[in-house]
Structure formats: structure tokens, C-alpha cells
């Protein structure tokens, strides 16, 4: 949950990138890291295996600027995608303010997307969250590849509620900031409702 600090005039929010293994979550964060000015970012931490698979999480703190005199800080996390890291995924969802679901558009990952989305719902529920009430956006990633499902098909399947959805190519950065902005907007609008 967000942390509002009147003493230092800061708002801190936690955003989690979720999705099946190898869908491009870490690549999203890496792109944001590479394109963000030095003074606006902290160190990117990746707790990864020797083969660069996310083991526990990636973490990227961002300072986006001021809103109504408060510095806004977003803490971006990714989860490990592989099925057997479920315990870690649950931990990372603790206190989440907004979720980005990164779907892998490739046809052969169709089922993996569904499974991961179901897993997200279950794990959120376990923490007392309801995905329907949480700031939530979907990115259809890897649009540059030839073997992708149509966005319409993906949307029908993964996005019945029609939350904001974006096409992406995290490797070249297409849609990456748009996705972050979409979820940040929902999170900040939530703060507004709460206040």
C-alpha cells in the first residue's frame, strides 16, 4: 500500500510486473532504467540465477517528479515467472498498489498467459486483494515477433474487464513507458479517491 510521508513530502507506491516466465518483465524494467535520467533513478537490483532468470525479484526505484508539492516515488518490482517460484511471487505482491500484467503474445505462450493470470488472481486473493479493484493494466509484449496471436484474441481472453491495454515490444522499448504511465495514472487516481 502506498506510503504517504508528510514529513518528507513524499508519496511512495509499489507496482508489480507480473506474467509468465520469459514474457519480458525484466526487459521492461531494464528499458525504463536505461532511459531514465541518473538523478531520477536508484540502483536496479536483480536477484537472478546465473542464467539471468529472475530468482526472487527485480527492483527499480524511480522518482518521477512532484505532484501537489509531493515527490512521487514508484518502486517497480518484477516477479519470477516460472511456476515453481510461486512462494516468492506471493511475497512480492504484499502491499502492491498497482499491477502490470505482461502477456507474451506468441501463440505458443497462449496457455502460459492464462495460467499466469489465474495465478495472479489467486495470489492476490490470498493477500486479501481483489484484482478487479486494483489498478491494473495489461501489456501485450513481443509484438515484433512473427508468430503472435492477434491483439483482439488476446484481449478477449485476458481482458474481459477492458482495463487499459497496450501493445509492446519491450526489447526496443515500444509501449514500455506508455504502460508505466497507464498504471501510474490509475494508482494516483486511487490516491485521489482515498483522499
Amino acid at each position: 500500500m502506498s506510503f504517504i510521508n508528510y514529513a518528507s513530502r513524499e508519496i511512495n507506491c509499489k507496482i508489480v510486473y507480473y506474467g509468465p516466465g520469459l514474457c519480458g518483465k525484466t526487459t521492461n524494467l531494464q528499458f525504463i532504467y536505461n532511459k531514465t535520467a541518473e538523478e531520477s533513478k536508484g540502483k536496479m537490483i536483480s536477484l537472478a540465477t546465473e542464467t539471468e532468470r529472475t530468482l526472487f525479484f527485480d527492483f527499480l526505484p524511480l522518482a518521477l517528479g512532484e505532484i501537489r508539492g509531493f515527490k512521487t516515488r514508484f518502486h517497480l518490482y518484477t516477479v519470477p515467472g516460472q511456476v515453481f517460484y510461486d512462494a516468492s511471487r506471493k511475497l512480492i505482491l504484499k502491499g502492491v498498489d498497482g499491477v502490470v500484467f505482461v502477456a507474451d503474445s506468441q501463440e505458443e505462450r497462449f496457455d502460459a498467459n492464462i495460467e499466469s493470470l489465474e495465478n495472479l488472481k489467486d495470489n492476490l486473493e490470498e493477500q486479501g486483494f481483489d484484482l478487479e479493484k486494483l489498478p491494473f493494466v495489461i501489456q501485450y509484449n513481443k509484438r515484433d515477433l512473427p508468430n503472435v496471436s492477434s491483439v483482439e484474441e488476446l484481449s478477449n481472453l485476458l481482458n474481459p474487464r477492458k482495463v487499459p491495454e497496450l501493445e509492446g515490444c519491450a526489447m526496443s522499448g515500444e509501449g514500455v513507458f506508455e504502460t508505466l504511465k497507464a498504471v501510474a495514472k490509475l494508482v494516483l487516481n486511487d490516491l485521489k479517491k482515498a483522499g
Binding site: I11, L64, I67, R68, F70, T72, K185, L188, L191, G195
Partner: peptide, 17 residues
């Protein structure tokens, strides 16, 4: 004590980026 965020506009959010 109204929340300082009650007045956030879409423009405020756009400006962050």
C-alpha cells in the same frame, strides 16, 4: 484536513512523465 491528493488532475499526472 482534506487530502492534498483530492485535487490531482490528469494534467498533473501527465506532467510527471
Amino acid at each position: 484536513a482534506p487530502s492534498p491528493f483530492a485535487e490531482i488532475t490528469d494534467d498533473d499526472i501527465d506532467n510527471l512523465f
